[in-house]
Design a protein around this nucleic acid. Sequence first.
RNA 1: GCGCUUGUAGCUCAGUGGAUUAGAGCGCUACCCUGCGGAGGUAGAGGUCGUGGGUUCGAGUCCCGCCAAGCGCACCA
Length: 554
Amino acid sequence: MIRDELAAAIETAANDAMAGGELPHVVLPEIVIERPAKHEHGDYATNLPMRLARSARANPLDLAKTIASRIPMSGAFAAAEVAPPGFINFRLSPAWLAQQVAAILAEGEHFGDINIGAGQRVQIEFVSANPTGPLTAGNGRGGTIGSVLASVLQAAGYDVEREYLVNDAGTQTDVFGRTLLARYLQLFGQDIAIPDDGYPGDYMIDVGKQLREEFGDRFADAAPDAPPPEFVLRGIDIMVESIRADLKRLGVTYDAWFHERSLYEGDGLYETAMAVLRDGGHLVDKEGALWFASQELGEDKDNVVVRSTGRPTYLASDIAYHYDKFIVRKFDRVIDVWGADHQGHVSRLKAAVDAIGVDPARLDILIYQLVSFRRGDEVVRLSKRSGNIVLMRDIVEEVGADAARFFFLSRSADSQMEFDLELAKRQSSENPVYYVQYAHARIAAILEKARERISSFDDGDVALLAHPAELELVRKMLQLPELVQQMARAMEPHHLPHYAGELATAFHAFYTECRVIDDDNEALSKARLKLCAAAKAVLARALTLMGMATPERM
RNA sequence: GCGCUUGUAGCUCAGUGGAUUAGAGCGCUACCCUGCGGAGGUAGAGGUCGUGGGUUCGAGUCCCGCCAAGCGCACCA
């Protein structure tokens, strides 16, 4: 990456200056390369001279001159300019920029790939909503963030596995089972109400009907408060299938579906994890329950892992689950994507991971703030229990998967977002996502048209590209690898839609200023067709990373 | 009360300690097709970056107080 090469060159220059006695021997800070906001300040800049000024007891401008003069200007860079109060600005060479078009075309759909992951195995778990009801619109945010982050990490060189945790073992599953059995029994004319704490949504009736179809009256004699496991598990399966289908509609898929229940079966992961905690002295009996002594690890309070009833809590499951992730499956890194309502769980899970002997730094928990919904001025309250919910599949149906993803992705995970259903629907045809896809389709049309007139532009000479709009488009394309790096490091996939928009703008501007297909100048036409093909590839890469379609026509 | 997150243009949001004028989209105003897709381009109006201090050569960005909003603070998940 050119940015890294520049940082290395600056470091070398500074060290050489010290060795040559032109600069006092000081410890170099990290070389920060920034992209100046203003065009006249070049393509890259460093503030190193200002950061050195104090320790070197020298004027930053003088330091800048000293260092700049030692940076070789050849190849990619055309100029290193010193600017007050102590910047060194770097300008990419137009000839080098033009040549990058060929380089991008050669990389094709792999352009943007980097290797900071170095093949490390990283698991990313996201959504993992309880299989007790259909996914809500809010789950769309977690699904989008998780799936795009996974793609970004893959592009960054990580070996990524996407996972959904199916909570099919806790008390919510019991409640689900009793509700479902009541609905089923009602179908046989029995006068049984669903539990007070049950799930009132009509979808439970549908699941009940499906079970009647599959099982007939086999469970018609079951006691309402003791749903048979086979019955409940089948109900869960049906819900999971519906969740899987909803996610697919949004363009979200997984490599693995992990069942919480499995922690308590077979290999006995739950017992193993608890034994590790016990051996480490992290479990204490008090008040009739078993507690994780997290207070000793710096937490506010201890947390129950086994209730006085003998049943494990969610925390116990989660500890065993992460024992499986780190110790059994040996992931180098684990990323959990959670809604802000789980924020309080972060530090105790990290403490627990620490307690089972895993460096908590290997566990990243990405919290996204919750989504609120409204229709115009009306606030929509969401509750699975009240039945007043906006379903994810309704959003996808209303505004389309691409627009929904673009919307969910455009905000940083830290920001609370407001989803105006009316606005989303109204703007669906003028959504930013279409602006990007339009650029892609437009290029496809140009290339199609070119094929009618020019047999091949393989022999086009990219060195002919020199127009400011052409070079600006190349500059924008070259940002993708840097962006992938930034997004992977900071776990911030929300930059992608903004970048895609800027890239589309750069193309549209080029298109307006530069005639591509020109019968009077075939050489330039061929060069520009190469530029178009490269732009199309980069747009496609950005769209694909976001999990969106790359339409040839719209 | 304690913890996490947020407060930037009319609206929805970007903004990696820097460079006399803080950006985008939508909305608003005025322009641009005798040529490849106008779902496009150009220009403009619109800001006490919640607020008060502090650190720094330099703060929307870092630290502290205050105000406001969301989410937590269970033997729910």
